[in-house]
């Protein structure tokens, strides 16, 4: 999949996360989280796993997390990718 346009998914509700995706020439993953200190590495690992699975190798992905669990991260990221990779 290739990120071709700006998209967004998720919310800033507690236990959810909001993702912003933009096209970019390289892969940029930015993570902001209320539990960044404890869990940033795990969030990043999950995000990278989903990206690899969908063969996404470039794009700017900004994660804003409020303590989401793994399945929420996967679901939100997949939804975001589908929107960002849609053909016009």
């Amino acid at each position: 999949m290739k990120i071709t346009k700006s998209a967004q998914s998720g919310t800033m509700q507690s236990s959810d996360l909001m993702i912003f995706l933009e096209p970019a020439d390289e892969l940029i993953i930015e993570i902001e989280s209320t539990v960044k200190q404890q869990f940033e590495h795990l969030i990043r690992a999950k995000v990278e796993e989903v990206l690899t699975q969908h063969q996404v190798s470039c794009g700017e992905i900004r994660i804003n997390d409020r303590g989401a669990l793994d399945y929420a991260i996967v679901a939100r990221l997949e939804a975001g990718l589908k929107r960002a990779c849609e053909k016009e």
Binding site: T11, M18, F20
Partner: peptide, 13 residues
């Protein structure tokens, strides 16, 4: 959180 989500979505667009 709901209001901020709506504002962020709208502002991102």
């Amino acid at each position: 959180g709901e209001l901020i989500s709506a504002l962020l979505q709208n502002g991102h667009q």
